Simulated scan of single mutants.
Amino acid sequence: MVTFKAKGISVSVDTAVGHIADLTIETGSRVLKPLHRAPWIDEPQEMLPQGLPDGVTRLSGDFLCAPFSRSDVEEAPLHGWPANSPWDLIDSSATADGWRATLRLQRTVMGATVEKILTVRDGHPFLYQEHAFIGGAGAISVAHHPMTVMREGGRLAFSPKRAVVTDADPLEPDPARGSYLLAYPARSEDLRRFAGKDGATVDLTDYRMDRRHEDFVTLIEADHGGPGWAAVSRTVERDVVLILKNPAELPITMLWISNGGRDYAPWNGRHRGVLGIEDGRSAVGHAASLGDNWLKREGVATAFELGPDRRVAFRHVIGALPAATDEAVQDVSAAMGQLRVTTAAGSVLDVPYDAQFLRIGSSG
């Protein structure tokens, strides 16, 4: 484990698997912890089922998936070696206004060296991340995998999306092993009106704790010219968890809704209130991402092309802000030196933010 800090923010990385194990943000008298940590991490390893990927046994915070989901082109565990194997700390040093750390994956991915560059800045309630693939050959699908957790649910909001889609099959189709809520396959242009498996309409912006289910849905970014964002207004925690991206680099957001819908070990129905907000350039599985897939048919890129003389990089931001209530966020906009968050009730919060970091307008 390595930890680095700037004024008001601390980040810890589990170097055994490259997961962001902890993100702590101090703002006024509040201490915010926006990221999730699996309940079985500190349990004896012999209590866990045999053969689990290391990325599951140490599931926490955020991590790089490369590829996303199945590793069926180059042999690796679920979500690839970046989520399941050691990283080396290459550099960790102070900057003029904070701290920067660079880690390097001990393995290669499609022949590429993989680096993780993490930056925190004094007074900024955000972790700024960049991942780079240096060299290699072929193509790789990628996604971030940040997870937040809510004790009593919350309200979800997103930058404009042009479609919300479920795949052909649910995550847990066997009722002896788990349960699901949504219809598969299904599609909507309205997050508040999505088909449920029983014919009812489900509001995906309302994370409720009174039903147990495991679901997975893909959101395609609309062409709106600004940063892609997700905002989770957590009811009991009284904060807003923010995730930001450049849609040109990561054109989809996949939601993993894990609310007690897996009944087998190590989940055992106790993995509740968890939401994965997985910004990616991917279909489900490496081979699917490289071949023909429904996202490509809609004009959405699902992989990055690698090359021996190329450095392919993409960026991502995770943060949290205090909130008096669980009002849903209405809008998030970036301007020079700040991020403005506006709620549906009209309240406005401006916080320090590096508006140039995501390189909006760049092709990625």
Score class of each variant (00 low, 15 high):
298 E>A: 14
306 L>K: 11
324 A>N: 01
351 V>Q: 11
299 G>K: 05
272 R>G: 01
299 G>H: 13
281 R>Q: 08
291 G>R: 10
279 D>H: 14
342 T>L: 11
300 V>S: 06
337 G>M: 04
282 S>C: 15
281 R>E: 02
310 R>S: 12
317 V>F: 10
354 D>C: 00
326 D>V: 10
306 L>E: 11
316 H>T: 05
345 A>I: 05
349 L>M: 14
318 I>P: 06
284 V>A: 15
359 R>F: 06
329 V>R: 03
285 G>K: 04
294 W>C: 07
346 G>L: 08
321 L>Y: 12
297 R>T: 06
302 T>I: 05
279 D>Y: 13
328 A>T: 01
316 H>M: 05
307 G>C: 04
328 A>F: 01
290 L>E: 10
337 G>T: 04
353 Y>V: 05
289 S>R: 09
357 F>W: 15
357 F>N: 01
306 L>R: 09
294 W>H: 11
332 V>I: 15
356 Q>L: 08
296 K>F: 01
353 Y>E: 06
319 G>C: 03
275 L>H: 02
351 V>R: 13
298 E>T: 04
300 V>C: 02
307 G>I: 11
312 V>I: 15
313 A>W: 00
310 R>I: 06
352 P>A: 13
275 L>F: 02
309 D>M: 06
333 S>M: 08
355 A>W: 00
315 R>Q: 05
308 P>L: 15
310 R>A: 14
275 L>M: 07
315 R>W: 06
310 R>V: 06
347 S>C: 04
311 R>N: 13
276 G>M: 05
281 R>Y: 09
314 F>P: 00
318 I>H: 09
296 K>R: 15
277 I>W: 08
340 R>P: 00
322 P>E: 10
313 A>D: 03
286 H>E: 13
314 F>N: 03
311 R>T: 15
354 D>Y: 01
309 D>N: 13
285 G>R: 05
340 R>N: 02
318 I>W: 09
272 R>D: 02
333 S>K: 05
292 D>W: 06
304 F>Y: 14
332 V>H: 06
344 A>D: 13
280 G>V: 02
273 G>P: 00
294 W>N: 11
312 V>A: 11
332 V>D: 09
344 A>I: 14
359 R>V: 04
303 A>Y: 07
340 R>G: 00
356 Q>H: 13
317 V>A: 01
353 Y>D: 06
277 I>E: 07
322 P>G: 08
328 A>K: 08
310 R>M: 03
334 A>V: 15
352 P>L: 10
325 T>F: 01
346 G>E: 10
335 A>C: 01
296 K>A: 09
333 S>V: 07
288 A>L: 10
311 R>K: 14
343 T>F: 01
351 V>D: 10
286 H>G: 01
348 V>F: 00
328 A>G: 15
287 A>F: 08
348 V>R: 04
339 L>E: 02
293 N>E: 02
339 L>F: 06
349 L>G: 04
322 P>F: 01
292 D>Q: 08
334 A>D: 07
299 G>C: 06
311 R>V: 15
319 G>Q: 09
278 E>H: 08
353 Y>L: 04
305 E>T: 15
272 R>L: 09
277 I>C: 08
353 Y>C: 02
282 S>A: 15
355 A>Y: 03
